[in-house]
Amino acid sequence: MSNQGALSDSSAERITRVEELAYELTIAEVMTKNPVTLTINMSMRDALDLIGKYKISGAPVAKDGKLIGILSTEDLIRSLRDGRIDRKVTEYMTHKVITVREHDQVVEALKMFAKTKVGRLPVVDENNKLIGILTKGDISNGVLTALQRDLEAEELIRYRASHLFEDIVSDRTSLILRYTIKKDDFLHGGAASNRIKKALLRLGASNQTARKCGIAVYEAEMNLIIHTNNGGFLRVEVEEGKIIMEAYDDGPGIPDINKAMTPGWSTATSEVRNKGFGAGMGLVNINNCVDEMIIKSSTESGTNLFMIMYLDKHPNGNEHGSKNHH
C-alpha cells in the first residue's frame, strides 16, 4: 500500500489529540515557573548581563512581585544605540504588557500569540503577581510531554490487560463479558459486538483475531435482534489460548439448521431486509470466522450458539480447527 506523504491513522489521531490538548492543558501546566525577572532598580546594563547569562530574548519586570513591564532585546538595542545603557530598565521597558492567566487554557495563549505577534507572554494571577512566563516553545514542550503521558498510559493499560492471564494465577483464569440483547433493537444493533471487539484488542488479541471474533458475534447479535421471540444474551469468555463466544435465547428455535447454514437462505421479512439484514449469510459468516461452531436448537428451549476461537497456541496445532455443527 502506498502511504507516501500520507499520515498514518495513528499520527492523524495524534493531531486531533494535540488540538484537544490545547483545550485540556492549562497555561500553568506548560509555562516556565520562576522566570528570570528584572526589578525596577536594575539598569539596562544589568538587564543585558542577565539576558546574556540565561540566553533568553527578553524578561518581565516586576515590583514587589507584581508585573509592571516587559523588556525585549529590541529595547536593549535601542538603549545601546542611544548610548544610554546605564539608564533604568523602567525607562525602556514596555509598560502595557499583554498577559495570560495561569488557569486559562493553552488555546487562549495560542490565540494571543497569533493575534499579537509577541514572543513571550507573562503569566499572572488575579492580583497581577508574576508567576511564570510562556513562549511557544513552552507550549510545544508541554504538549509533547502530555502526548508522551497519554501514550504511556495507553501502553500500560494494554500491557496490564494483555498480561492478565500471566499475572493472575489460578487453575483456570478467565474473563467473562455479558451483554443483554433486546428483540428488535436495531438502533443499538452491533454495539455489543463492537465493545467485544475493542475488549479483545485491549486484551492483546491480534487485529485479525479481533476482526473475526467481531464478525461472528455481530452476526450472532443481529440474529438475536431479528429472529428471537424475546431477545437473548451474548457471553464471551476469554481465557489463555481461546475465546469462547456464546449466544443464547429462549425461542423460537431453528427448525432446520442445515437450511440455515445455506448461503443466501433467510427467513427475514422484507422489513428486516430493508434495514440491510437478512442476507442469509449470518451463520455462514460465523462458520467462516471461528475455529469451531456448535449450534444446539430446539423449538421448545430456543437456540444456543457456541463459537470458539483458538489463539496462537492451539492444542490441536490446527490453524483452522475443526468446523462442525450439531
Binding site: 500500500m1 502506498s2 502511504n3 500520507a6 499520515l7 491513522d9 492523524a12 464478525i215 455481530y218 452476526e219 443481529m222 431486509r273 440491510g276 439484514f277 437478512g278 442476507a279 442469509g280 449469510m281 449470518g282 455462514v284 459468516n285 467462516n288
Partner: peptide, 17 residues
C-alpha cells in the same frame, strides 16, 4: 488518509462475508 481498495453492498452480512 490513503485508500487502496473498495467494496460495495447494501446487505451488511454480505459486506462482512
Amino acid at each position: 488518509l490513503e485508500v487502496v481498495g473498495a467494496f460495495a453492498g447494501d446487505l451488511m452480512s454480505d459486506v462482512l462475508a
